[in-house]
Nucleic acid binder design. Structure first.
Lengths: 227, 227
DNA sequence: CGGAACGTTGACATATATCAAAGGGAGTGG
DNA sequence: CCACTCCCTTTGATATATGTCAACGTTCCG
């Protein structure tokens, strides 16, 4: 049992590269949890008893407005941790989390983890790297929410996706999320996102076929993204 | 000279509580820099060679849109660090920084600091705490930018300030920043902020006299802030 | 097969940015 | 000590992007 967990830890970005002994110790601080699509993992303001690493599947961390609009703060894919910061802050989760697909999660319990970090501060280094990455993403999200329109955000999202892909012709991006979810990531609603897709299509910058986006004019797309 | 720096380090939240020996080492990794009001400290996309701790004064970290609108990501006051995350990320500053007042800064140079953290990973723990705090602030900023209107943001800002203050009657908040700067923190422009102040005034929730805001109806203010 | 979730489009409402103008306060130099 | 200037702040008129509400077609899944 413990050895299975160790294998999963090794696959995470946070704990990859640690030696056997340390993994062994970490394994005693974690457990596994399976969640089904749509299941809530925690709610905003719940006491933060743990943080999580996605082993398989996909989860979102999000805020809801009183009127029901949703803003996704983070989508975590396999190997990625989430809610780490909650353990070092106010003691409660600052947002809610829900599974976007059937998923299995490594649950890292607070008490044991904090003890462990005190004993082996080298773990904190990995945490710093992950948190720096998250800060960078949030900086950019703030910038986009405050300073750019939605078509620009969409163009920026698409150029990012292109850069993650191989540049095979024809240049296409397959959306990793449903358009509803993408809208919430970009800080808008499905109707508005749909109109932005329509605008880029009308201008012959992209061609949309369901979740497959063909990039017709990459230079133009970068221009619109403001880069 | 070095002992003066040690004193300043001791006063920072990041390095407070460390022992003499460690402070001595950290002191060799830093230098001091004086900047005058309005002076740029770094520009977005500059290579990140260091991070900073405010010893005295006040600085802002911000993004600019192509049209010239500004979004403040962070205001750093004495004892607070900024741009830490740049050292562990892409290697360049993700935003720009400018002094809001004549200030003196502790400059922590990247190479020496990274070596130091490797040698004394306990430093990373303090960094984790600071970064968790920043993540929390940015989470909230994203939430507000995406999900709430500006009067709500202003009300929220004011309730926060009230909570930091002593509750002496009459209940007043003295703005720590010029209203122009506050507007940029809240993700808007001075005109719109001014209208939000006017609305709260008209509804007898607050009374504004320059930078002194008297809270006439705290319950109502919390309601508007959504809490 | 049927229902639910997703996606698109249209008409409309509204919050906020933009542009313009003017008053006031603080600091500076005469 | 006054007067001048600069910046901050406020107010008004207007433009615009985006959210809201509604309807409809499609896809997906049970």
């Amino acid at each position: 049992m413990t050895s299975a967990i160790k294998e999963q830890l090794r696959g995470s970005r946070l704990f990859a590269g640690f030696d056997e002994e340390l993994l062994e110790e970490i394994a005693t601080a974690v457990s596994l949890k399976r969640v089904t699509k749509g299941e809530m993992i925690f709610y905003e303001k719940d006491p933060a008893f743990a943080f999580f690493i996605v082993y398989e599947g996909k989860v979102k961390v999000f805020k809801l407005s009183p009127e029901g609009k949703e803003q996704i703060l983070l989508i975590a894919n396999p190997g990625e941790s989430f809610a780490e910061a909650a353990l070092f802050g106010s003691g409660h989760f600052p947002a809610s989390s829900q599974a976007l697909a059937d998923s299995s999660l490594i649950v890292v319990h607070q008490d044991k983890f904090v003890q462990l970090v005190d004993k082996k501060p080298v773990i904190a280094l990995k945490l710093v790297v992950r948190m720096a990455e998250l800060l960078h993403k949030l900086n950019r999200l703030v910038e986009e929410l405050s300073l750019t329109d939605i078509t620009t955000r969409l163009a920026h999202y698409l150029t990012d996706e292109v850069e993650k892909s191989s540049y095979e012709k024809p240049l296409t991006v397959t959306l990793a999320e449903k358009k509803t979810v993408l809208a919430s990531q970009l800080g808008t609603i499905p109707e508005t996102l749909s109109r932005s897709f329509a605008k880029l299509t009308k201008d012959n910058v992209i061609k949309v076929d369901g979740s497959v986006i063909e990039i017709l004019d990459l230079d133009r797309l970068y221009e619109i993204a403001g880069e």
